[in-house]
Design a protein around this nucleic acid. Structure first.
Length: 283
DNA sequence: CACCATGTTCCTTG
DNA sequence: CCAAGGAACATGGT
């Protein structure tokens, strides 16, 4: 579930639940997700620490924590990788098979579950230093996007996955944004016209904004009753029954009719990843 | 068994 | 030095 919209919704959900909570205990089941922090350091730093703020940067979660007395506030950096989830469960709840890290908050447990263990929960924050602007922030301007694209020969779809260009777009929303902009994923980044860049800029922001809005309508229940806890990547709207995948225009729709012109959606592989597009709507 | 998967990083090649 | 491509990471679904 991990692109910017999913992370944004998760952050909004967790923020009030974690505020001022003190970490009473730390259980690390998979050292790899702490990289490069050592389990010892991780436990020593977090035990007794208090959650102060939670923000998002690209696909990363930034937990600001206040360690035990005297020490400087620190950032605990989270990333969901491909299959990561973070949620709270009752203290006595059974833990999932792939619970990588569990934090005891006294009245509940914070669980970082990750089937494939590609995610992170670490005290090393260097990963966010190389990120480009927030796509929904004021630093991400049409002029900046145009200037950055003009220096790249990469196919535009591949370039959109470059987190130093703009932070937070992943494989699903890259295809979705390009359909919205009417631009072929195969076009070299530098070949986009000024008008094309402008359409892409709007498409990126609209696609992500819409996804966040959709996710915000999905009832999340991490409190432990066990239903609706799968985040909106797998969720559905309570009113319309619209499933997440039914909202997508091209992603994972190879061979199915384009929702705009009925032309079969095509799938190609770029940089070893699937790209979906409508050959008629995009050029 | 084969192939595919929401992501990032490292290594090789040019 | 940089750009681009591919493999690796690890597990599960179809």
């Amino acid at each position: 579930m991990p692109e910017l919209p999913e992370v944004e919704v998760l952050v909004r959900h967790l923020k009030p639940l974690l505020r001022r909570k003190v970490i009473r205990g730390v259980q690390v089941n998979r050292d790899r997700v702490l990289r490069p922090t050592h389990a010892r350091t991780f436990k020593r730093t977090l035990e007794g620490a208090r959650f102060i703020h939670l923000t998002r940067r690209g696909k990363y979660l930034l937990f600001e924590i206040s360690p035990r007395q005297g020490r400087q506030r620190r950032i605990l950096l989270g990333h969901l990788g491909m299959t990561g989830r973070m949620y709270l469960v009752p203290s006595k709840a059974a833990l999932p098979k792939h619970a990588a890290v569990v934090l005891d908050l006294g009245d509940s447990l914070f669980v970082f579950e990750d089937t494939r263990y590609f995610g992170r929960l670490t005290l090393d924050t260097t990963a966010v230093e190389g990120l480009g602007p927030e796509p929904l922030g004021s630093d991400f301007t049409i002029a900046r996007l145009a200037a950055d694209l003009a220096r790249s020969n990469q196919p535009i779809k591949v370039k959109l996955l470059d987190q130093s260009l703009v932070a937070g777009i992943g494989n699903i929303y890259a295809s979705e944004a390009l359909l919205r902009a009417g631009i072929s994923p195969k076009r070299p980044a530098k070949s986009l016209s000024p008008a094309g860049v402008k359409r892409l800029w709007h498409a990126i922001r609209q696609t992500l904004t819409d996804a966040v809005a959709f996710g915000s309508t999905v009832p999340l229940d991490y409190a432990g009753t066990g239903r609706g806890e799968r985040l909106f990547y797998y969720g559905q709207m309570p009113d319309t029954e619209t499933r997440f995948d039914e909202r997508l225009q091209v992603y994972d729709r190879e061979g199915k009719p384009c929702r705009h012109c009925s032309t079969p959606i095509k799938r190609i592989v770029q940089a070893a990843r699937s790209t979906f597009f409508c050959p008629k709507c995009q050029s």
